[in-house]
């Protein structure tokens, strides 16, 4: 299928990426080409094929619910792009 500019714009909104007008054109062309190629899988009859989310043995892996201390918390705080004391600062979200 081909992806028009409106669809690109919709996907970009879902993906939280701002795109300029010329980029909408660019990605519309590129994604359409890629999708046309990808649609090769439609040649296969998949009706009888089981749906499995993993090709690895499906085993649930449990571990003890144990609290472990992380020693280097200051290093996490140090890399906040914007902060106030030990808090991350973000734009106001409540009117």
């Amino acid at each position: 299928m081909s992806i028009d500019k409106t669809t690109v714009s919709y996907i970009a909104r879902l993906a939280r990426i701002n795109l300029e007008e010329d980029e909408l054109d660019y990605y519309s062309g590129q994604l359409s080409k890629i999708l046309n190629y990808i649609e090769k899988i439609n040649e296969l009859d998949l009706k009888e094929i089981p749906l499995s989310f993993s090709v690895y043995p499906d085993v649930n892996i449990y571990q003890d619910d144990e609290v472990l201390n992380f020693e280097n918390t200051q290093a996490i705080i140090d890399i906040f792009p914007q902060k106030s004391d030990n808090f991350i600062k973000i734009p106001k979200v409540i009117e």
Binding site: A12, A15, I17, Y27, I34, L35
Partner: peptide
């Protein structure tokens, strides 16, 4: 939301955007 969108616009290169959009689609 604008902060997310502008940060990701400036922060990701072309191929990263292409893959994110293909995957999102």
């Amino acid at each position: 939301i604008e902060l997310y969108k502008r940060t990701r616009q400036e922060g990701f290169g072309q191929e990263a955007k292409r893959r994110i959009m293909l995957g999102t689609f």
